[in-house]
Structure formats: C-alpha cells, structure tokens
Amino acid sequence: MSALRLEVEDFLFHEADLLDRWQLDDWLALLTHDAAYFVPPNDKPDGDHNTTLFIVADDIVRLRERIIRLKDPSCHAEWPPSRTRRIIGNVKASEADGEIQVRANFTLNRHRRGGDIRSFSGEYRYRLRRENGALKIAERRAVLDAEELGHMGSVSFLL
C-alpha cells in the first residue's frame, strides 16, 4: 500500500511543479486521451457536471483549448501569469479495476501584482491509469473547501 502511495505522491509532486512553473504542455502530456478536469461549484461539491453548473468541467477537447488560451498573452486574467504555489499532503491512494483512486489535500496561494494574494484550499480527487508503465491522469477534480469562491475571484489558472 505505501509503495503505491509513494509512487502517487511522487507523481502529484511532479504535476504540482509543472503547474506552478506553467509548463503546461508537459502537464498535458500527463493526461490520458480522454481525460477530464473539474472544479465543482462551492455549494455542490459532489454534484454531477451533467446536471449541475460547475466552475470548470472540461473534456479533453476543451482542456487542450484551455491550455492554448492560458499560453496566450491575450488571456488577460493570467497575463502576466499568476505566481502559484501548491502544497499537497494527506495523500490516499487505492488501486482497483486498473485504475488508481487518489484523494489529496491541497493549499494553493496565487500571487499577482499589487499585493494581491488569494488562497485556495481543498481536496484533489484523481482517477489515474497506468499507460506503458507510467501514471496518467484520466480525471482530475479540485474540490474547494470554501462556501463560496468569494475573494478567490476567478479560477482562471489550472487549480
């Protein structure tokens, strides 16, 4: 069990580095061909994106477009890009039916000019798969703790 957790932790730490360094194409390479990325609304953290209005509910097609947007200097909400730092802990992983279910806590601070610091905390939920021996993200969900987005404002970067 702990071998799996260590493997998953290494993977999550690597992913966090890519995101915090804005190496977005490298991050895309961590995804399966059918990956999805979700940020549920604060009032329905366990909702279904087909029946509930989410903050983000990207299939792989829109996720690739999101990366194109994030790399464009005309993505005004992220230009200049935010400085982010995420700390990941309390990692739990279990493997069944060829997939690895992961839950991990995160805190993330997003810094922009003018002393603008916005804090995010919550739980990452993943479905990971092994492809050619490497872990890949089939689904990634960032579930926020806060009752409302409030001071966090926009989720314009990859949370």
């Binding site: 549920p40 609304p41 604060n42 009032d43 329905k44 909702g47 029946t51 509930t52 209005l53 989410f54 903050i55 409302e148 987005l149 409030g150 001071h151 966090m152 404002g153 926009s154």
Partner: peptide
Amino acid sequence: VSGTQEYDI
C-alpha cells in the same frame, strides 16, 4: 439549475 457560482470582483 443546481450549482451556484459566487465570486467577488
């Protein structure tokens, strides 16, 4: 529809 987006500007 269920789901609320509440954010500050």
